[in-house]
Protein backbone atom coordinates (compact mmCIF):
# COMPACT_ATOMS: atom_id res chain seq x y z
CA UNK A 1 0.00 0.00 0.00
CA UNK A 2 1.35 3.39 -0.95
CA UNK A 3 0.81 6.06 1.66
CA UNK A 4 -0.96 9.17 0.51
CA UNK A 5 0.04 12.71 1.36
CA UNK A 6 -3.03 13.04 3.60
CA UNK A 7 -2.08 9.98 5.63
CA UNK A 8 1.42 11.26 6.09
CA UNK A 9 0.24 14.75 7.02
CA UNK A 10 -2.02 13.13 9.59
CA UNK A 11 0.66 11.11 11.37
CA UNK A 12 3.20 13.94 11.17
CA UNK A 13 0.66 16.18 12.86
CA UNK A 14 -0.05 13.61 15.61
CA UNK A 15 3.69 13.05 16.20
CA UNK A 16 4.32 16.78 16.42
CA UNK A 17 1.50 17.39 18.90
CA UNK A 18 2.24 14.36 21.08
CA UNK A 19 3.52 14.96 24.60
CA UNK A 20 7.27 14.18 24.33
CA UNK A 21 7.45 11.70 27.25
CA UNK A 22 4.53 9.66 25.94
CA UNK A 23 5.96 9.61 22.42
CA UNK A 24 9.41 8.52 23.58
CA UNK A 25 7.93 5.86 25.88
CA UNK A 26 5.62 4.34 23.29
CA UNK A 27 8.14 4.24 20.46
CA UNK A 28 11.28 3.09 22.30
CA UNK A 29 10.83 -0.61 21.44
CA UNK A 30 9.93 -0.03 17.83
CA UNK A 31 12.99 1.93 16.79
CA UNK A 32 15.77 0.29 18.79
CA UNK A 33 16.77 -2.20 16.06
CA UNK A 34 16.85 0.34 13.26
CA UNK A 35 19.83 2.41 12.27
CA UNK A 36 19.29 6.04 11.31
CA UNK A 37 21.57 8.38 9.37
CA UNK A 38 21.06 11.96 10.37
CA UNK A 39 20.72 14.19 7.33
CA UNK A 40 19.80 17.35 9.19
CA UNK A 41 20.51 17.20 12.91
CA UNK A 42 17.72 18.69 15.06
CA UNK A 43 18.02 22.46 14.85
CA UNK A 44 16.03 25.23 16.50
CA UNK A 45 14.78 28.20 14.54
CA UNK A 46 11.97 30.64 14.00
CA UNK A 47 9.06 30.51 11.63
CA UNK A 48 6.58 33.23 10.84
CA UNK A 49 2.96 32.29 11.36
CA UNK A 50 0.49 33.93 9.00
CA UNK A 51 -3.27 34.03 9.32
CA UNK A 52 -6.44 35.45 7.79
CA UNK A 53 -9.01 37.32 9.83
CA UNK A 54 -12.01 34.98 10.15
CA UNK A 55 -10.20 32.71 7.68
CA UNK A 56 -11.31 35.06 4.89
CA UNK A 57 -9.66 38.48 5.02
CA UNK A 58 -6.22 39.52 3.83
CA UNK A 59 -3.31 37.47 5.07
CA UNK A 60 -1.36 39.08 7.91
CA UNK A 61 1.64 38.12 10.02
CA UNK A 62 0.37 36.74 13.30
CA UNK A 63 3.79 36.37 14.91
CA UNK A 64 6.90 34.26 15.15
CA UNK A 65 7.07 30.86 16.73
CA UNK A 66 9.97 28.69 17.82
CA UNK A 67 10.36 25.54 15.80
CA UNK A 68 12.68 22.54 15.82
CA UNK A 69 13.20 20.54 12.65
CA UNK A 70 15.02 17.34 11.84
CA UNK A 71 15.56 14.99 8.89
CA UNK A 72 16.83 11.40 9.09
CA UNK A 73 17.20 8.43 6.76
CA UNK A 74 16.37 4.98 8.13
CA UNK A 75 18.12 1.73 7.26
CA UNK A 76 14.91 0.84 5.33
CA UNK A 77 15.90 3.73 3.02
CA UNK A 78 12.99 5.98 3.86
CA UNK A 79 13.53 9.63 4.74
CA UNK A 80 11.64 11.13 7.67
CA UNK A 81 11.04 14.82 8.31
CA UNK A 82 9.73 16.53 11.41
CA UNK A 83 8.78 20.04 12.45
CA UNK A 84 8.01 20.47 16.15
CA UNK A 85 6.77 23.53 18.00
CA UNK A 86 9.21 24.52 20.73
CA UNK A 87 12.83 23.58 21.26
CA UNK A 88 12.73 19.91 22.26
CA UNK A 89 15.42 18.28 20.11
CA UNK A 90 14.81 14.70 21.31
CA UNK A 91 11.15 15.06 20.38
CA UNK A 92 12.05 16.34 16.90
CA UNK A 93 14.54 13.52 16.36
CA UNK A 94 12.08 10.84 17.44
CA UNK A 95 9.26 12.29 15.35
CA UNK A 96 11.52 12.27 12.27
CA UNK A 97 12.60 8.67 12.95
CA UNK A 98 8.98 7.57 13.30
CA UNK A 99 7.98 9.45 10.14
CA UNK A 100 10.66 7.50 8.28
CA UNK A 101 9.45 4.15 9.65
CA UNK A 102 5.76 4.89 9.12
CA UNK A 103 6.45 5.13 5.39
CA UNK A 104 7.53 1.50 5.33
CA UNK A 105 4.42 -0.68 4.74
CA UNK A 106 5.12 -3.37 7.39
CA UNK A 107 6.64 -1.18 10.08
CA UNK A 108 4.05 1.49 9.36
CA UNK A 109 1.09 -0.70 10.20
CA UNK A 110 2.54 -1.78 13.53
CA UNK A 111 3.56 1.74 14.46
CA UNK A 112 0.17 3.19 13.54
CA UNK A 113 -1.40 0.73 15.97
CA UNK A 114 1.13 1.02 18.79
CA UNK A 115 2.13 4.67 18.65
CA UNK A 116 0.01 6.93 16.48
CA UNK A 117 -3.48 5.69 17.40
CA UNK A 118 -2.99 5.70 21.21
CA UNK A 119 -1.56 9.22 21.05
CA UNK A 120 -4.33 10.35 18.78
CA UNK A 121 -7.07 9.12 21.14
CA UNK A 122 -5.19 10.68 24.05
CA UNK A 123 -5.08 14.03 22.27
CA UNK A 124 -8.77 13.74 21.40
CA UNK A 125 -9.64 13.00 25.06
CA UNK A 126 -7.61 15.96 26.26
CA UNK A 127 -9.32 18.19 23.75
CA UNK A 128 -12.79 16.93 24.70
CA UNK A 129 -12.21 17.44 28.43
CA UNK A 130 -10.91 20.96 27.80
CA UNK A 131 -13.99 21.60 25.70
CA UNK A 132 -16.29 20.39 28.51
CA UNK A 133 -14.46 22.55 31.04
CA UNK A 134 -14.87 25.59 28.83
CA UNK A 135 -18.50 24.86 28.01
CA UNK A 136 -19.39 24.63 31.71
CA UNK A 137 -18.58 28.30 32.19
CA UNK A 138 -19.94 29.56 28.90
CA UNK A 139 -21.66 32.94 28.99
CA UNK A 140 -23.90 34.00 26.11
CA UNK A 141 -23.91 37.76 25.79
CA UNK A 142 -26.85 39.62 24.35
CA UNK A 143 -27.77 43.28 24.23
CA UNK A 144 -31.23 44.77 24.77
CA UNK A 145 -32.30 47.62 22.58
CA UNK A 146 -31.99 50.63 24.85
CA UNK A 147 -34.48 52.88 23.11
CA UNK A 148 -32.09 55.80 22.70
CA UNK A 149 -31.42 57.31 19.31
Amino acid sequence: MKTTTEQRQHWMSVLAKAPPETLLGLSEDAIKDIHFDIIRAPEVGLTQVRARMGNRGERFNLGDMTLTRCVVRSSLNTVGHSYIAGRDKTHALRAAQLDALLQDPQMGEVLMERVVQPIESMLADARASKQRETDATRVDFFTLVRGED
Binding site: D37, I38, I39, R40, A41, E43, V71, R73, N77, V79
Partner: peptide, 13 residues
Protein backbone atom coordinates in the same frame (compact mmCIF):
# COMPACT_ATOMS: atom_id res chain seq x y z
CA UNK B 1 13.48 13.28 -4.43
CA UNK B 2 13.97 12.55 -0.79
CA UNK B 3 16.07 9.43 -1.25
CA UNK B 4 18.93 11.42 -2.80
CA UNK B 5 19.41 13.58 0.25
CA UNK B 6 22.67 13.22 2.10
CA UNK B 7 24.22 14.79 5.11
CA UNK B 8 25.59 18.31 4.84
CA UNK B 9 27.64 19.70 7.71
CA UNK B 10 27.93 17.70 10.92
CA UNK B 11 27.35 20.86 12.95
CA UNK B 12 26.06 23.55 10.59
CA UNK B 13 27.07 26.63 12.58
Amino acid sequence: TDSQLQKGFEQPV
